[in-house]
Computed example of a mutant assay.
Amino acid sequence: MIEYDGTSYELAYGRKRIEVAEASLGKSILAVFSDRPTIKDLVITMACGMRREGESAWMNPKQASKVAEECVEELGYATCYQQTIEAIDRDCGFLFR
């Protein structure tokens, strides 16, 4: 869970959300996260999995990108990277088996 600007967000992924992220990134999630992703790649990946806590629908992509960018700036790259990796591992463990 990510707390930002008085709102709680969660990162949630499934196979389809990973495919959306990969289409936006132009490369596989595994290629991006085999090393540290660029800030842009991290923001894209976060935005693809971002939703408000307790909601089942993902956020509008433009709004999610804006929140993800601000989170990286305010909370730090390392915190956002860790949250993203943990969410992908939790939700898409099949990528790592």
Rank of each mutant, 00 (worst) to 15 (best):
Y13L: 02
A64Y: 02
E86I: 04
G14E: 11
Y4F: 15
Q63V: 14
S8E: 13
A23E: 15
T7V: 15
I18A: 01
R90M: 02
E69W: 07
I85A: 11
V32E: 11
G6Y: 05
V72N: 06
A68W: 10
K66Y: 06
A87C: 07
R97L: 05
E86P: 01
C80E: 13
Y77W: 01
E10I: 13
G14Q: 05
Y9W: 06
L75W: 07
Y4L: 15
C71G: 11
E69Q: 09
L75Q: 11
D91A: 02
K40N: 12
I29M: 15
R90C: 02
Y4T: 01
E10N: 05
D41G: 12
G14A: 07
E3H: 10
S65E: 15
P61V: 06
I2E: 03
R51D: 03
P61M: 05
A57I: 02
S65A: 06
E3D: 09
T79S: 14
V43K: 08
A31E: 15
I85N: 10
E53C: 07
L75D: 00
Y77P: 01
M59N: 13
G76F: 09
V67T: 09
T84C: 15
R90Q: 01
G14H: 11
T7N: 03
R90Y: 08
N60E: 15
E86M: 14
S56K: 11
I39S: 08
Y9N: 04
E53F: 11
A57T: 09
E74F: 07
S56W: 08
Y9K: 05
G49L: 02
F33Q: 08
D41Q: 15
V43Y: 05
I39F: 02
S8I: 12
I44R: 09
A31N: 14
G76V: 12
S34G: 15
C92F: 06
D91S: 03
N60H: 15
S34Y: 14
R15S: 06
K66H: 09
C71P: 03
A64K: 07
G26W: 04
V43G: 03
M46C: 13
K66T: 10
S28M: 00
R36P: 01
I29E: 09
G76K: 06
E74G: 02
